[in-house]
Design a protein around this nucleic acid. Structure first.
Length: 567
RNA sequence: CGGGGCGUGGCGCAGUUUGGUAGCGCGCGUGCUUUGGGAGCAUGAGGCCGCAGGUUCAAGUCCUGUCGCCCCGACCA
């Protein structure tokens, strides 16, 4: 590739819309262009990187017995009606009608398509287990895409589906995929990926892990234990909460507390800590619109995922538009609530003494609440983990980190096979339903994370395994026929073995170097009049760790050796 | 969906408060000079100021509506 011919302008200035490092460099380097919110065109450099990533994905999936297929992007709604997801999934599923008026959708994930294929091709237990995968475009109409390629609406994803005749077999294979994923991230140059337990969400199933690239710019909160390795998505994370056992029980007193509707003003007023208060958080169930109150210690936040699991319904926070008889801001744990209102108590309250709670009338709070006297029969784990909480497994202090989800694996169970009537004949001659796993990795997001991990102030530094080209030749003083000739020569010789991009433009050296930095090609050659005078070519690496001057006739050999080391 | 911000040449921005001929830097074309970290001089092209209404003698600027984009939150495989 000649740089003079490469489509895509590279900018000096940071595009105003971009915040994340990866987004900034992807735009500045001419890798991507936005077409619409969350919808991008990949230009040649990004496309080449994506293909490299896909090649790694293929190799690793093939090596664990995967068979590559390609499902359609446009699917009939009827298929999704079989699994029930046509109706259960929200507006992130893009629905439309074809010209005959038939309901259609754009695939956001392909469990249904996988079962559709497998149920008609696989009949006998002798054919199990098997895994099929594809690398294909997905469309998810995200309510909020952001961060360049980190979260988009249209993207390429590797998604795999495995089928098994027993839970044990699924679990065995799940571990195999787990290890393959670790290998994939390593090969792609990502070292900061950890796995965490995750919520199964709309996918269904029991066990699931997410692979998280740790990054402050990440959008997911993770809980990790630095000692024992416990790690979990915030949604399902648990912890031990410290209680002050020595705090004595007190007498209840009603106190006039004008306008003190939040925890902060309450703690200021009484001169107490947040953990000495009881917070009432009010939600609405989305299934029947009933009100739910969660009482939780004042230093805690409600984990809505946990609450939703307990309620078996989604919830939303109560808004000012909801009608309610509750005295918002003064809802207290001693209240006598209408039978239509569900009340839950978080475990953080257990055994606490001398707490402050709302008085259930405007401008009053009650102090001296001793939980054990309240006759609460059940406490639930509904709270978010706080930074510094004790690890349930080992007792050390948990840390909260941010991460970008770069992959997930699920033990789906029989949710899809059962609802979609997939069966096989077992050894005993009986029809049985297989159990499934599914496994996803987003290509573009992985690409973005590689930049997040590998860059300097001038641009990305692509690992050799995914680099758009392996060698970047800068031909300075290309007006000089001798220089140009040496450049052309190297370009064609190296091009026989490697992917080479050559900057053949007659522009200033600084201009060329800046572009080279933005393209991030791992090995750089500089051919120039100055070097030619000494009969050498400069060979360096993008990360600046290597810088050599090689005699012209040793360049081929030297570069080959350097590249083999970098692989 | 809630909160905040922004739409002026390819990119980055000023101009909007106080209405009066649309500007700057980068990039792009041409010529000369230059040539190791985003060169210099000269010259040129490129914008109905997101869109639609309205107010006004006059609208980038004021009013109404609408569309789009970014950030935070909700949401998310």
């Amino acid at each position: 590739m000649l740089l003079s011919e490469l489509l895509g302008e590279r900018y000096k200035e940071k595009p105003s819309d971009a915040q994340l490092i990866s987004h900034i460099f992807l735009l500045r380097g001419g890798y991507i262009r936005q077409v619409s919110n969350g919808i991008f065109t990949l230009l040649t450099p990004a496309r080449r990187i994506a293909l490299k990533i896909e090649a790694i994905l293929r190799e690793e999936m093939d090596s664990i017995g995967g068979q590559e297929v390609l499902f359609p992007v446009a699917l009939p709604a009827d298929l999704w009606r079989e699994s029930g997801r046509y109706d259960s999934v929200g507006s992130e599923l893009l629905r439309f009608k074809d010209r005959t008026g038939r309901d259609m959708l754009l695939g956001m994930t392909h469990e249904e398509a996988a079962v559709h294929l497998a149920r008609s091709e696989i009949k006998s237990y002798t054919q199990y287990p098997f895994m099929i995968y594809q690398i294909q475009t997905k469309f998810r109409d995200e309510p909020r895409s952001r961060g360049g390629l980190v979260r988009v609406r249209e993207f390429t994803m590797k998604d795999g589906y495995s089928f098994h005749t027993s839970q044990q077999d699924l679990e065995n294979y799940y571990d195999i995929v787990f290890k393959a994923y670790e290998k994939i991230y390593k090969r792609a140059g990502l070292s900061g990926v950890i796995s965490v337990k995750s919520d199964t969400g709309m996918m269904g199933g029991n066990v699931a892990h997410e692979f998280m690239y740790l990054s402050d710019g990440g959008e997911d909160s993770l809980v990790v234990c630095p000692e024992c390795g416990y790690s979990s998505n915030m949604e399902v994370a648990v912890s031990k909460v410290e209680h002050d056992e020595k705090k004595p029980a007190k007498e209840q007193k009603t106190v006039y507390t004008p306008d003190l509707t939040d925890i902060k003003s309450l703690t200021d007023f009484f001169g107490i800590a947040e953990k000495d208060t009881i917070k009432a958080t009010v939600f609405k169930r989305t299934d029947n619109d009933k009100t739910v109150i969660v009482f939780i210690r004042g230093d805690r936040e409600v984990n809505e995922s946990k609450l939703e699991k307990i309620l078996k319904s989604e919830v939303r926070p109560l808004t000012s538009e909801d009608e309610t008889d509750l005295v918002l801001g003064f809802v207290g744990i001693t209240g006598d609530f209408d039978g239509d209102i569900e009340v839950y108590y978080d475990e953080t309250l257990v055994s606490e003494n001398d707490m402050v709670t709302g008085g259930n009338k405007i401008d009053y709070h009650i102090t001296g609440i001793n939980i054990s006297e309240l006759k609460i029969d059940k406490f639930y784990d509904i709270s978010k983990v706080n930074d510094g909480d004790e690890c349930v497994a080992c007792g050390s202090h948990l840390q909260i980190k941010r991460g970008i989800e770069v992959g997930n694996i699920f033990q789906l169970g029989k949710k899809y096979s059962e609802s979609m009537d997939m069966t096989y004949v077992d050894r005993d001659g009986q029809l049985k339903i297989p159990t499934m796993g599914c496994y996803g990795i987003g290509v573009g997001r992985l690409l973005a994370c590689i930049i997040e991990e590998h860059h300097d102030e001038n641009g990305p530094i692509w690992p050799m395994s995914v680099a758009p080209w392996q060698i970047h030749i800068n031909v300075l003083n290309s007006g000089d026929e001798d220089v140009r000739e040496v450049g052309r020569n190297l370009y064609s010789k190296l091009g026989e073995k490697f992917e080479v991009v050559m900057d053949d433009r007659e522009v200033g050296a600084g201009f060329q170097f800046a572009d080279a930095d933005l393209l991030g090609v791992p090995v750089r050659l500089v051919v120039s009049r100055r070097n030619l005078k000494n009969n050498v070519v400069e060979v360096s690496t993008r990360d600046k760790k290597v810088k050599l001057e090689l005699p012209i006739d040793e360049v081929l050999e030297g570069v080959e050796e350097l590249i083999s080391k970098l692989k």
